[in-house]
Amino acid sequence: MKKKFNITLIIFAFIFVIDQVVKYGFVNFDWDVEGPIMSLQLAYNYGVAFSMFAFLAEYLKYIQLLILAGATIYLLKNKDVFNDYYIAIALIYAGGLSNILDRFTYGAVVDYFYWHYGFEFAIFNLADVIINLGVAIVIFIQIKKAREEKKQKELSS
């Protein structure tokens, strides 16, 4: 358990720092680059995904911190969940806390990836990608466990 916790901290710290450094660069050094498929363009997101709930902009950071606190309490009470999903948890927490820090530091989440080839997509950031990767890992593990349970039931029948 301690080894998994240490791995979680290392993954968390690495991703969190990289994401914050990149965001700092976009905010302070004009790293915008125009590309034919995707551009790097600074944007501030006052809401959540696709700017939903932007009307809650000032309160979102506190709402998100409460959700994260609830998730942490859940994980402390359900150590087996942490044990099974520690890598995904590290990714989700790193991306989530980095975006929350943006809200305190810049007043909004700093976004910069802008897909515009064939269709226009929402502007997003590395933390968003990392959060989605963490969720994909959770789904993958869930599917794998469900298949294993199904196989065990078939063998015991």
Score class of each variant (00 low, 15 high):
Lys2Asp: 09
Lys3Asn: 14
Phe5Gly: 00
Phe5Asn: 01
Phe5Trp: 14
Asn6Glu: 11
Asn6Trp: 13
Ile10Pro: 11
Ile10His: 09
Ile10Met: 12
Phe12Met: 03
Phe12Ser: 06
Phe14Tyr: 13
Phe14Gln: 06
Val17His: 08
Asp19Lys: 05
Val21Leu: 15
Val22Glu: 02
Val22His: 00
Val22Tyr: 00
Lys23Ala: 04
Phe26Arg: 09
Val27Asp: 05
Val27Cys: 06
Asn28Met: 06
Phe29Cys: 05
Asp30Phe: 11
Trp31Tyr: 00
Trp31Leu: 15
Asp32Met: 03
Asp32Arg: 09
Asp32Pro: 07
Gly35Leu: 09
Pro36Leu: 08
Pro36Ala: 10
Met38Gln: 05
Leu40Ala: 14
Leu40Phe: 15
Leu40Pro: 04
Gln41Glu: 11
Leu42Phe: 13
Tyr46Gln: 08
Tyr46Pro: 01
Ala49His: 00
Met52Thr: 14
Ala54Met: 06
Ala54Lys: 11
Leu56Asp: 05
Leu56Met: 15
Ala57Gln: 13
Ala57Trp: 03
Glu58Cys: 00
Glu58Tyr: 11
Tyr59Asn: 13
Tyr59Ser: 12
Leu60Asp: 02
Lys61Arg: 15
Tyr62Ala: 11
Ile63Asp: 09
Leu65Thr: 12
Leu65Ser: 13
Leu66Asp: 08
Leu68Ser: 14
Gly70Tyr: 02
Thr72Cys: 10
Thr72Ala: 13
Ile73Met: 07
Ile73Pro: 06
Tyr74Asp: 10
Leu75Phe: 07
Lys77Met: 01
Asn78Trp: 04
Lys79Gln: 15
Lys79Tyr: 00
Asp80Phe: 07
Asp80Asn: 14
Asn83Pro: 01
Tyr86Ser: 08
Tyr86Ile: 01
Tyr86Thr: 05
Ile87Val: 15
Ile87Trp: 12
Ala88Asn: 02
Ile89Tyr: 10
Ala90Cys: 03
Ile92Arg: 00
Tyr93Ala: 03
Gly96Cys: 07
Leu97His: 00
Leu97Asn: 01
Leu101Cys: 12
Arg103Cys: 08
Phe104Leu: 06
Thr105Gly: 01
Thr105Glu: 11
Ala108Met: 10
Val109Gln: 06
Val109Leu: 10
Asp111Ala: 02
Tyr112Thr: 00
Tyr114Arg: 07
Trp115Thr: 04
His116Glu: 07
Gly118Arg: 05
Phe119Arg: 04
Phe119Gln: 00
Phe119Ala: 10
Glu120Trp: 05
Ala122Asn: 09
Ala122Thr: 09
Asn125His: 03
Ala127Cys: 03
Val129Tyr: 07
Val129Gln: 05
Ile131Gln: 03
Leu133Lys: 01
Gly134His: 01
Val135Thr: 11
Val135Glu: 04
Ala136Val: 02
Ile137His: 08
Ile139Cys: 12
Ile139Asp: 10
Ile139Trp: 11
Ile141Glu: 06
Gln142Pro: 00
Ile143Tyr: 08
Ile143Ser: 01
Lys144Trp: 12
Lys145Asp: 15
Lys145Cys: 06
Ala146Tyr: 13
Ala146Arg: 13
Ala146Val: 03
Glu148Gly: 07
Glu148Cys: 07
Glu149Val: 08
Lys150Ile: 06
Lys151Gln: 13
Gln152Met: 15
Lys153Pro: 00
Leu155Glu: 15
Leu155Asn: 10
Ser156Lys: 13
Ser157Arg: 12
Ser157Phe: 12
Ser157Asp: 14
